[in-house]
Design a protein around this nucleic acid. Structure first.
Lengths: 220, 220
DNA sequence: GACTGTGAAGTAGTTCACAGCT
DNA sequence: AGCTGTGAACTACTTCACAGTC
């Protein structure tokens, strides 16, 4: 609420969840303080980048000492907006949709599965990861009941735009698209894409061109 | 083989698979020629970027006309190294591993599933997406038999580094890591990471901060 | 002495704008 | 006239290096 209103670069935002994951681990190990050097090592980046990234959130370190793990963890959660859970609605109960619905890594990290919906009547009613598959017509109701919701598109590419439109119409403001297709949404709806085959193709490129140096991006 | 030896920026490499997907669609629709403008629209970027990206691959366009779809498609496949299939070995037969193994989008786009391996004897022998789960001890043999192979890590975070080491020892030179953990590999091994929860957290950030403008990165 | 926070310098990526070919 | 290919200008991001604080 009081937060620094400094604009945070996209590149920094993309790294914050990684820092969050590390801070959670450090806190579990009862480590009270961490230096930018150590955080950098754990995140696979350099210390200057860590300090600059964290400085966008505020002045949370102590010179000569480092960062208090619990305090930084709190601030990081605050910055990321993950102080409360964000329920997830998965659209598409095919292989990918069922997998995502079953994937414990979501609920564990604050994104509990609220529902799975599918257009296919044959799939409606079957159970997937603790919940029953519901028809698309229930979407608006499900979103209303769980707001704020993140919509996950796990359908074939050709219907992805249609599904995105329905999600937006139902009141979803954040969408993660796993379908291999371009989806466009109104501004102020947040959208990210994960395309698994695309990642493999990028690997293929670097393998095909690995003569010299920069084949592997050392992060990850 | 003859290819331009111009160094291709990482940002460009990351967009090439998207262009590839679009070119495949255009070719299926029997569209013979495409302009940078049209390609840009389909990829959700601007035309200058498309032209610059394609210019790194070579001079494949015709001024006043545009790009020949089939020819550009051929060159794009060449550049990405996806003229032959790349078999994939999935490590981890949990929810995520099984999902990835079943995901048709892989085989469809030139990454057939070669094998699934797991440490858990209870899972070994069960069938997942056309193949039987094999023990970790078979890894080296499986890799040898299918070279070149892409290794996919679909295990819990804490064992990801161990698995990566085993993949590298087995002769895998490209790894896609789905485990929420930092993995490091020797240089000249290509490594990419996909962390599903991390993507949701990035969405959470932009939702929490959506007052003005750039909440959604319009790509995707 | 140790470590953060940050201007300044350096590097990578994007967009402009137009010359050059068809 | 239409559309590519690309230097040049611009913007974003990273890294350096050091003043400031504990």
């Amino acid at each position: 609420m009081d937060g620094h209103a400094r604009r945070i670069p996209d590149a920094t935002v993309a790294r914050l969840p990684e820092y969050l994951r590390i801070l959670v681990e450090l806190a579990e190990q009862r480590i009270g303080t961490v230096s930018s050097e150590r955080l950098a090592e754990l995140a696979g980046v350099n210390a200057a980048k860590v300090r600059k990234d964290l400085s966008y959130l505020g002045t949370y370190g102590t010179r000569g000492v480092g960062y208090d793990v619990d305090y930084l963890l709190f601030q990081m959660r605050q910055a990321l907006g993950v102080t409360q859970d964000w329920p997830v609605v998965v659209v598409g109960a095919g292989n990918l949709g069922r997998a995502l619905a079953n994937y414990a890594g979501f609920s564990d990290r604050g994104f509990p599965l609220a529902a799975v919906v599918d257009v296919d009547d044959a799939k409606v009613g079957t159970t997937v990861g603790e919940v029953a598959v519901r028809p698309m017509s229930d979407l608006a109701e499900l979103v209303r009941a769980n707001q704020p919701v993140i919509g996950v598109i796990a359908t074939p590419g050709p219907v992805a735009q249609l599904v995105a439109d329905q999600l937006v119409a139902a009141g979803v403001t954040a969408i993660l698209n796993f379908a291999p297709a371009l989806v466009s949404v109104p501004p102020n709806i947040s959208l990210r894409k994960v395309d698994l085959a695309l990642e493999l193709q990028i690997l293929s490129f670097y393998q095909s061109h690995r003569e010299s140096g920069s084949a592997s991006r050392s992060w990850a």
